[in-house]
């Protein structure tokens, strides 16, 4: 009987290895493990086995049965797996078909640059303050030490509405408005739209500036430099350098123009910067004490710095845009490049 079992085992193993479809697997199960199955038939001979040998034979029977069952389920799992694989192989889609819903759009290059500049300043403790674009002559000029009919008015071509109301020619107008309402120390930036009577490839009658103003007790030109280098590095990259050149603005003293290393050549000199390695970008300086006093801030106690610059130009430089007018055309072929 032991011999019979051994033979059965070998026969079953040989047979199952040849099974190659799910249906035959069931036939195999019936043939060996069914009520009339071969193993069952052998078991019927158990009663002829001497009592002392029964445990040994019994164990052998269980072993053979377990082996067959194990093989059966392994085979079964294998068939299922193959079935799923062939199913997966049939079910595929063209993943390059267009997505549904809306493809995302994009912000204007100006907005992107504004966000970058504003966030950099906010992180340095600046509050964002906006002011009106249609402005009183007083805030745009007089409160900034630019009296009526003064030669320094010639620095800008202004659009006038009436004798006393104009389209602001600089976001500096927000300086005076801020000083009226905020108590030092404070740091503010004022991003916004400005207007000048000027139009060509590099000048738009409508453009954008960002003004910064810091008033505290121990402010110096060195603080201005330290702050602007952080801002310019956030804007144009970590290797950016800046330099001061003397200049004149009625509301700052000393006044400087701030040159920034060309973002294209980093100071080596290239076509973009006309070989100078630098770009003239900002106007800045220590707030003229006359401006502080005119706006009710004690110039003996407080000092401040201010800076301002054209943001359209920053966006143009950063994105290689040559003509400022293309910024206002809204051609989708231009805007799509900002995605």
């Amino acid at each position: 009987m032991q011999e019979q079992l051994k033979q059965l085992k070998e026969q079953a193993m040989a047979e199952i290895s040849k099974v190659d479809e799910k249906a035959s697997l069931n036939e195999f199960r019936v043939k060996y493990l069914g009520k009339q199955g071969l193993l069952t038939q052998i078991l019927r001979g158990m009663r002829d086995v001497p009592a002392e040998q029964r445990p040994v034979v019994g164990a052998l029977v269980n072993e053979v049965r377990a082996l067959i069952e194990e093989q059966l389920s392994a085979k079964e799992a294998d068939f299922e797996k193959r079935e799923m694989e062939s199913e997966l192989a049939k079910n595929y889609i063209d993943i390059t078909e267009p997505a549904q819903g809306h493809e995302r759009g994009a912000l204007h290059p100006l907005s992107k640059v504004f966000e970058l500049l504003i966030d950099s300043c906010v992180n340095m403790g600046f509050k964002v303050v906006e002011g009106p674009e249609v402005e009183l002559d007083y805030y745009n000029f007089e409160a900034l030490n630019i009296p009526k009919n003064h030669p320094s008015r010639d620095m800008q071509d202004t659009f006038f509405i009436t004798d006393n109301i104009l389209l602001r020619s600089q976001t500096s107008s927000v300086q005076a408005r801020t000083m009226e309402v905020m108590k030092p120390p404070f740091k503010i930036i004022s991003p916004g739209r400005v207007y000048r009577n000027d139009s060509d490839a590099t000048h738009s009658p409508v453009f954008h500036q960002m003004e910064g103003l810091v008033i505290d007790e121990n402010i110096s030109m060195a603080d201005l430099k330290a702050m602007l280098i952080v801002l310019m590095r956030k804007t144009f990259g970590e290797q950016t350098q800046i330099r001061f050149r003397p200049s004149f603005f009625p509301f700052t003293e000393p006044s400087v123009e701030v040159d920034v290393t060309c973002p294209s050549c980093h100071g080596e000199g290239c076509r973009l910067c006309k070989g100078t390695g630098f770009m003239e970008l900002l106007g800045a300086g220590i707030v003229n004490p006359k401006v502080l006093e005119a706006n009710g801030i004690d110039s003996k106690k407080y000092r401040g710095f201010a800076f301002g610059f054209g943001v359209d130009r920053v966006a143009m430089v950063k994105n290689g845009i040559a003509d400022i007018r293309s910024m206002f055309k809204n051609d989708i072929r231009f805007l799509k490049q900002m995605k």
Partner: peptide, 12 residues
């Protein structure tokens, strides 16, 4: 940065 100044709160 702002070596001798008071800390101010920034924000939009």
């Amino acid at each position: 940065l702002f070596e001798k100044s008071k800390v101010t709160e920034g924000g939009l």
